[in-house]
């Protein structure tokens, strides 16, 4: 059985790390990191993703790709928490100097693959340019099937990202090839840089679109731990189709003044805002 209170406590600590990283760098994307972190917490700490931080190249590991690469603080905080990288390395996020073999940072503004000279151990792809992660996940899923391996590939997209045409090329392919070792998640926080997705170019109804492309679709509240856990279980048990989890989330979740405000897509808090955020998160969140 999974201890939901324990998972929530981990997510609370990760939220502090996320806000601290962006504050320290005075740069980065807090809003979409905070909306994604509950899902990542369940994936990495809830027993779904199989991985070994002491062996990042373990061939049979499950893969997670953060296609919405701007939420890198969320990924980096998780990779530190599970032990792929030391916690103090989070201070090198978006900094010039860091822990790479050439002295530069391994926590680039957007994730770099662990095989990249400036990549992060545990990062399964270079992302940041939106729309590419789903295709990469398909390549990894195909490779696993070809090698008769039973690893699974997870990929998280932003809802704004779904506007990219490449995402639909990939959706069509994954449905056609019935890639049931593939699970995608859309972090559906309704906001993109310029504002409300539904006003800019509406992507909905998203569940119908993915169903039409041959996917098994699950819709959940992306901050409800029971729903997240059930969705990953359902995805794991779904055969003959890739699974799409559409997770309704709140951008900036956990920091009152960041919540549902697209202005916090890619802005760092000042000292006063940072202290207020930490105070809220230390008290257990809003």
């Amino acid at each position: 059985m999974r201890d939901i209170q324990q998972l929530k406590e981990i997510a609370r600590q990760l939220r502090i790390d996320i806000v601290t990283m962006v504050y320290n760098a005075q740069s980065g994307h807090p809003g979409g990191s905070l909306s994604a972190i509950d899902i990542l917490t369940v994936l990495y700490f809830g027993g779904f993703l199989r991985y070994d931080p002491t062996n990042p190249w373990w061939e049979d590991r499950d893969r997670f790709i953060l296609s919405k690469g701007h939420a890198s603080p969320a990924l980096y905080s998780v990779l530190a928490k599970v032990g792929y990288i030391p916690h103090e390395e989070l201070n090198t996020y978006r900094k010039t100097k860091g822990y790479a073999s050439d002295g530069y940072s391994r926590l680039q503004g957007h994730p770099a693959w662990q095989g990249n000279r400036h990549g992060t151990p545990g990062a399964e792809a270079s992302t940041g340019s939106l729309g590419q992660g789903l295709s990469i996940a398909i390549g990894q899923a195909l490779s696993g099937k070809l090698a008769n391996k039973n690893y699974r590939v997870y990929v998280m997209l932003g809802d704004g990202e779904v506007q990219e045409g490449m995402v639909w090329e990939a959706a069509m392919f994954a449905g056609h090839h019935k890639l049931d070792n593939l699970c995608a998640i859309v972090d559906n926080n309704n906001l993109q840089i310029d504002g409300d997705i539904r006003q800019i170019v509406n992507i909905h109804p998203l569940p119908d679109k993915y169903r039409a492309f041959g996917w098994h679709v699950i819709e959940i509240d992306g901050h409800d731990y029971n729903q997240i856990i059930n969705a990953f279980e359902e995805a794991t048990n779904t055969k003959g189709k890739p699974t799409m989890i559409i997770a309704h989330t709140v951008k900036g979740k956990g920091v009152s003044f960041m919540e549902n405000n697209f202005k916090w897509h890619g802005v760092a808090p000042n000292k006063e805002q940072y202290e207020k955020a930490i105070l809220e998160l230390s008290a257990g969140g809003v």
Partner: peptide, 26 residues
């Protein structure tokens, strides 16, 4: 036939899938 994939008329996906396969060491 097992090691050939025709992605259809979708060159962005072509490169993305190629990358994914290469990430796994192929």
């Amino acid at each position: 036939p097992d090691r050939f994939f025709n992605v259809g008329i979708a060159e962005q996906n072509l490169i993305g899938i190629a990358a994914g396969l290469a990430y796994t060491g192929r």
